[in-house]
Amino acid sequence: MSEIETHTIAVVVDNEPGVLARVIGLFSGRGYNIESLTVSEIDEEQSISRITVVTSGTPMVIEQIKAQLERLVPVHYVSDLTLEGSHVERELALIKVRNSGGNRVEALRIADTFRARTLDSTLESFVFEVTGSVKKIDAFIDLMQALGETEVCRTGVVAIMRGEKVASTN
């Protein structure tokens, strides 16, 4: 068997009702993985949304996923950022940590190292906002969990190509 690869794919679609259901239904109906999925409108006038999906599978499955996505009527184009080459990926997370005493000082110190912003603080809790790669956020959450009771909310990955190249039909 071929090796399983993880790909980050940008799907640019008409922002019409049901379009996200079509994309998600395709993944569940055909048994593909979704590791992360984000979606938001990127052009209000034209009503266009961009979906960033991180998925995994053999090269043949990845090809299938892209071909199946491209076949959906409201899809304008599908761009495999992993295949296109160098790109940046970022995720944003909000992390609430409930603790007291020395752990609070430690939490602030670590937040500073991770360049996390403190959005809210009480005597018993902090809410941090941290942005970065998936790995960085994983690491930050791991550390916070060691310092108290946590609640986590993550956006999922957004990605864009480096350099002057823009995503378009492959």
Binding site: M60, E63, Q64, A67, Q68, E70, R71
Partner: peptide
């Protein structure tokens, strides 16, 4: 005519 039919079952 359907790219998703290509390389789906048989390479």
């Amino acid at each position: 005519i359907d790219p998703s039919s290509i390389n789906k079952n048989v390479k």
